[in-house]
Amino acid sequence: MSHLTERTILELRDGVPVDADASAHLDECAVCRTALEEAEARSVDIASALTDLDEGFDVASAREAVAARLAGRATTAGGGRRPSARAPFWTLGRAATFLLLTTGALSALPGSPVRDFISSRSLDPPAPSALMPAPIEPVGMRMSVQDGPVIVELDQVPPGTSIEVLLVPGSSVAVRAAPGSSFSSAQGRMQATIVGGPVTVEFPDAIDEVSLTVNGRTYLSRKDGNLLFGFAPEQDPEGIRFIVP
């Protein structure tokens, strides 16, 4: 039998089951025993070198951060997959248009039950109730830009807040967030103090140099067409989404 392959030597070292022939060969072959000893020594050296890389990590703080992220997502997402920022606008818009056109057409017909239904109801909007809360409209700011760089800075963003980033056609940058958030802008820079999410940031697709900073930390930047992430985004097929830790 020829000498054992390097693969078999490593499998022997690492306790992976190998052919009985290989074990038998090892008993008889000094060359392969030496190779195994070298592999074992190499293993010790590598483990030692890798240990040198280790640092101290604060487990208690990390535990709290993970618990906060979980709580934030449960609040933000309602336990299910979050819809994309674009889909609800389109879907709701189409549904509303269809409803208006259908209702209008039916109510125009004399004797229509829809006409009777409408005439029997007050035209005043219903008062908000616990079962039907008033919809919360996001607030925001839009700013026209001619060229880069474009910088968006979000401050005081609460943990667990969802931030959706969209690259959109046109030449304006926009930020939307929960009511109570405040916004200001200067040349190529938009700043916002965020009280809650979900937050949507729109960058113009035509501008090559953009960046998004959240609570003092760069989450995303774009330069020469390449997106760079300073913070891991959610994998969302419809966009880029961050959850603030």
Binding site: D54, A62, A232, P245
Partner: peptide, 26 residues
């Protein structure tokens, strides 16, 4: 957590990345 964040740190070479990713995985 600790073995995970150490692995992430060894793999990424960046402490912040390691903590972000390990926490996200948890």
């Amino acid at each position: 957590y600790l073995p995970l964040v150490r692995y992430c740190h060894r793999l990424s070479g960046d402490r912040d990345t390691a903590e972000d990713v390990a926490q996200e995985a948890m």
